[in-house]
Design a protein around this nucleic acid. Sequence first.
DNA 1: AAACCTCACAACCGCCTTCCG
DNA 2: TCGGAAGGCGGTTGTGAGGTT
Length: 305
Amino acid sequence: MRVARQPAAGVAKMDCNSSEDDSELRRGPWTLEEDTLLTRYISHHGEGRWNMLAKCAGLKRTGKSCRLRWLNYLKPDIKRGNLTPQEQLLILELHSKWGNRWSKIAQCLPGRTDNEIKNYWRTRVQKQARQLNIESNSKRFLEAVKCFWMPRLLQKMEQNSSISSSSSSSSSSLPSALANSTLPITTLMYNTNHHSSSVSVTSPPEFPSDFTKISLHQPHEITQQSTSVYDVNSVCTNQIPSDSYYVDCCGYDMEGFNFNLGSMTGMGSFNLSSSSECPAAGSDWMSNDMVDASWNMDDIWQLRE
DNA sequence: AAACCTCACAACCGCCTTCCG
DNA sequence: TCGGAAGGCGGTTGTGAGGTT
């Protein structure tokens, strides 16, 4: 965890409505003492009435500042650490549905704050969009997320689950990574049999009917091929090679989708091959070092070299 | 070892909405 | 019904840590 910034020397600027007390308002990083004061006060009196709370607690902070500090940092049920693949997947899904409605998205991720999700999106997702020279709010990027990133997160989840299940109970049909999922809204289904496996994310009843539905399959009945360049129609009709996972894009309008992961110049096709042209989608794209919690989409989007 | 760069994230800002007298 | 205060939210910034050159 990062060390808090040094307390800012400055105080809040005066405005026309400032009282004398306001001129002493502190800004900048919170000190341990302030955190203690705020936590102690809220534990005794509860949240709400933030301006009054700030005064009563003896904090020289605005109510807003106290609220933010509590909600984003001090609240006991806040989760720390990297976002899990499940959480990342959910964020991608919900963002594709709701856009920058961070607080709404955060409500679906217990223990995660809107600020954290917003930061995740800005620092990781938008970074990838920049690297790919795609506008992060463009349809093109959205499709890239849906068709590459999401399935890989699913695959990651499956990989995690198979590792954990093999280390515990190999006969379990519900991997612990999924069984332990805290996702409140997304139904995760996992099936495995002798030759095939799938992970599906489906919409719960309370979601609109067009809510994202993606499935990850590895159908055994399709003949192996060395490369897997195929068009979107093939994907949507399940006529795809089996050396790669594919996405069931039922929930998406894939018409006119022009995207080639390898060159970014293809028309009407995209590449999930295991060739060197697209190592991210290759058979070794998910090596063991991606299993740790710090895994992120950089691993997915290593498109070049 | 130092300078520089990038990343992550806490905190702030300003606008909008809701609440309340 | 109105106006001010408070709360909520999304966008932006500042800064320390860690990595790279």
